[in-house]
């Protein structure tokens, strides 16, 4: 079982990993149904953000309730919310990876927008306006950063501190 021999921090990291995958799928699905661009159909994009926010809250409530029930039944409830020095060290190292990833994503986003503006027949996403690319790019970058943060945390909990 995934949660076997894991502490509260690792369990919440598993939930966050699942959360980012679910929200990425949800948002990508919503993007497919969008008509037009941000400049012509801004209301649809704002609606997608609202739906994504609502889905996030529902997911978090269900996931953390399920975790609380599982911990109650497994008898792990005693050390609930205890975060010790090892957890902090692991989170600090994972955060470093996440920041590298965030910087890379931001650079890629801006390089793409710059290239789209100056290079004729630029091959990547030719039909997506820069503002739309930036909006969706920031969304997916944030999810990727969170995914890498939590996945590297889990990796360190499983392998070494």
């Amino acid at each position: 079982m995934i949660f076997k021999d894991s502490n509260f921090s690792e369990q919440t990291a598993w939930i966050s990993v699942t959360f980012t995958v679910f929200i990425a799928w949800f948002y990508a699905n919503g993007m497919k149904q969008l008509e037009g661009t941000f400049s012509t159909h801004a209301d649809q994009i704002v609606g997608l953000w609202a739906k994504t926010m609502f889905a996030s809250i529902i997911f978090a409530v269900i996931a953390f309730s399920a975790l609380a029930i599982m911990r109650k039944f497994s008898g792990d409830d005693d050390d609930n919310l205890l975060i010790d020095e090892r957890d902090e060290l692991i989170e600090a190292r994972a955060t470093r990876w996440a920041y590298y990833n965030l910087s890379t994503c931001i650079i890629i986003l801006f390089v793409h927008i710059f290239c789209q503006g100056v290079i004729t027949n630029y091959p990547f996403f030719p039909n997506v306006p820069p503002i739309d690319f930036l909006i969706h790019g920031v969304m997916f970058s944030s999810l990727l950063v969170e995914f890498i943060l939590r996945a590297s945390q889990i990796y360190r909990y499983r392998k070494a501190a």
Binding site: N7, D79, E85, A161
Partner: peptide, 26 residues
């Protein structure tokens, strides 16, 4: 032991396995 130190049981297991070196305080 974890309770006496204020750390998680997984941290004690990691120290015993040589996967984690505790702080001087611990």
């Amino acid at each position: 032991l974890a309770k006496a130190l204020g750390v998680t049981r997984q941290t004690i297991a990691a120290i015993e396995a040589g996967k984690y070196s505790p702080s001087l305080e611990v």
